[in-house]
Design a protein around this nucleic acid. Sequence first.
DNA 1: CTGAAAGCGCTAACAG
DNA 2: CTGTTAGCGCTTTCAG
Lengths: 338, 338
Amino acid sequence: MATIKDIARVAGVSVTTVSRALNGYSDVNENTRQKIIEIAKQLNYSPNTLARSLVMNKSKTIGLLVSGLKRESSKDNFTFEVLAGVNQYVGETDYDMILFSTNSTKQREKTYTQLCRERRVDGAILQGIRIDDPYLQEVVESDIPCVLIDIPIESETVGYVTTDNVLGAKKAVQHLIDIGHKNIAMVNGYEFAFVSQKRLEGYRQALLEANLPFCTHWVVDGKFEEEIAEEKALKLLKQYPEITAFFCASDLMALGVINAVKKLDKSVPEDIAVIGYDDIFLASYSTPALSTVAQNIFAMGYEAAKLLIEMLEGKAKSHVKILETELKIRESTVKNHC
Amino acid sequence: MATIKDIARVAGVSVTTVSRALNGYSDVNENTRQKIIEIAKQLNYSPNTLARSLVMNKSKTIGLLVSGLKRESSKDNFTFEVLAGVNQYVGETDYDMILFSTNSTKQREKTYTQLCRERRVDGAILQGIRIDDPYLQEVVESDIPCVLIDIPIESETVGYVTTDNVLGAKKAVQHLIDIGHKNIAMVNGYEFAFVSQKRLEGYRQALLEANLPFCTHWVVDGKFEEEIAEEKALKLLKQYPEITAFFCASDLMALGVINAVKKLDKSVPEDIAVIGYDDIFLASYSTPALSTVAQNIFAMGYEAAKLLIEMLEGKAKSHVKILETELKIRESTVKNHC
DNA sequence: CTGAAAGCGCTAACAG
DNA sequence: CTGTTAGCGCTTTCAG
């Protein structure tokens, strides 16, 4: 593979000149430059970014640490959409992206930080990390610039992008209240998810503002899984038949709840209204079509990449980006009989 | 950031010894090694893979060139599943993977080959490339080892993984014939997709073997898109009311065909049977649940990565891997009235 | 405008 | 078992 040395030899100039010519420096004779470019083309030259990165001490590479890059997670394409968003922005720059999966065997031996340091990534985006993940702390405390998705930590080198989860949840619950529901249960994700904490808070606020009681027994954790949500909802509905509506912290769980309702020979939305969160693709395809709080996940990925690269180039004004959510009312919630 | 030089200084040995100790060479005193490892830990040392790659002339990196890493493609999660499969295998090795999107602005300036050469990837996996893509030729002719997904090109440095598309299509059409259909139309993808050519062949074979006429007017291209398939099917059904069944080259298109049938106030499967291809997640969720030819796409990604890395390590016996497909009969095909 | 020389962090003969 | 030396391909002072 041709190197600048080869070009230099053929052109009869020094490697310095070749380097400068190819990198568009101004202090090189236009004729020399043209000749060098010509020769580079003939030799089918490709710069060796490894060598360049080594000497420049930056790799123009960002690491994307994702969880949920596994087989089962294609249902809820959260990870995929983040990835697509990141990829979109990165594709518009001269950075490339290297993918680290947080559920690989490799990762069990090396921490995220090690992975990033070894590959000398300039910065990283973290998605799907639980707030009790010991490595989260480590990455954040390292000197690697990073942007977190849905985890609000901010520092000199750390930024985040998220949506307003309190408000999103509030809008959903208010909608249920608006259409006449008074006994609203919630199926949350899990304790250690930041978004779960916030959505719970939104649920609580909406109830209180409507002078409805907030009862912890009506809040269960579905671990963001369809089956668990179904199970928990089933139990809840049997124990508290007065419940007429469910607010779920994810669409997948909402689908589970709908299954539970069906199993009790009741129907959605006539007997029980159900609203989800995320607006996954399936939401609009299921029967009944699922009302939900839509998050633009692609945009989260895009903005995360944008923020990170701005941080790397030292031109980020803020390290925080909060995106909007949108209430989508479909068939699974509808004006109540009462 | 600590280097082996730092370690050498502190340990009072040469960098060579440090390098050897850390890389597990046998010709180094166990005491020295322990001391060096200890110091490395204290200094929070991370090897610089850039430097290592530069000197070793291999990067332990594979490039994944995917198309369809865009927003809209989350419906059919083909790309995602390939990605997940590749990631799974790569995660079990000491390789990392760098993601190149073939629909980025960057790619419009640089060819895939350039991208790969600049980053010095050891090999590449290509997915979603059309066989008329000019760059396909280029990559294949370059000296970069690569594995293609669903494109049968084989050479010293090129391998591929695919499924038996002729057989898959044949099974689907035979199933339609088995349940009594005689007038079976096909909605294909597009001319320049290898899988489309093969599935068409399978369709043709199944018909001929059953002594049914093969009529080109009954084969239309839906470009793998739901809406286009719907449109084309609508036209076909109006023009040839004798058609009672559709074989579609993708599930998404099958969904489109079902829409078309509904628009004519007919129903699936009573009036028209529809079978798809892929077994996307949506297939089992739609109403009626879609019969289809299931491909294990995750496995294709996994096997592609496996094959590539075996090729890189010089221990691939074959450069070709053909995976099985499985006929999944659900609600959209059912014994015909005749 | 151009070149010589140094060095990024690491590995690999080769010699002891 | 260990050190010396050279060099991977590139950028960057510093002199001309």
